[in-house]
Amino acid sequence: MSKPLLEVEDLWVRFASKKRVVEAVRGISFSVGRERVGIVGESGSGKSMTGRSILRLIRHPGEVEAKKIHFDGQDLQALSEKEMRDVRGHKISLVMQDPKFSLNPVMKVGDQISEAYRVHTNASKTEAKERSIAMLNAVQIRNAERVYDSYPHEVSGGMGQRIMIAMMLIPEPDLLIADEPTSALDVTVQRRVLQIMDKLVQERGMGLIFISHDLNLVASFCDRVIIMYGGRIVETCRADELQNAKHPYTRGLLNALPDIHKPKDQLSVLERDPKWIEDPSVDAFL
């Protein structure tokens, strides 16, 4: 494969309080090419923090430290805050989990989407509006014109999420970080949203980091899976081989899932081993 789009080496995210330092991400290394990479883990495993730290979106008192965060040959850590703003949205986009907290409540949906487009291009207002409506149609929103003129509280959660995705995709980023983008959506809408992202990866060669806790979904949607536990990578494998994963944590997660076709009386419960936290992180390079 060609040179990876994103290379991260020895990434740490720490939150210091007066009493102690919480290490949310502990020395992980991975790379993403023009492919779909899934990051799975339970809540608190550091998967969202990983996504945010790449875009330098960790707020005080959080601290990010890494030997290397390179995107497309560019050292992201060396960029100024102003240069970073050009990267966010334009080159790397982040779709967050909850549309209720990520859309501006006092700004019309359409204005927010066109703004995302106009910040990064020299498009005129009418051009931006046309593009925005086309994008809303692309994410399967019926009545795109009406939605363009409505406020976030007037649309449903699923629609809000699709609006977020439209907004993130309109500047045509090279890398999309999607943090649980479909957790709030119904299964049928979820499939449409995934198809849109899939198409962008296939046709435009976009890279995708897909953060999720849904093992089945990641196994069927992604090319590669990174499994995180306690802030470190415990295992990495090809998505279609997730069923044969070796690490006891991954096995535990897989066994805890109920299966439609294989009924069992009791679900197996994950037994945690403190050793998993202490072991060094696994590198997940291409």
């Binding site: 805890a256 899932l257 109920p258 009386d265 009791q266 679900l267 419960v269 994950l270």
Partner: peptide, 14 residues
């Protein structure tokens, strides 16, 4: 809930 916790709660309910 996470899948691991979901398994515990579903077992409890059964």
């Amino acid at each position: 809930l996470d899948v691991s916790v979901q398994a515990e709660i579903l077992n409890l309910l059964s």
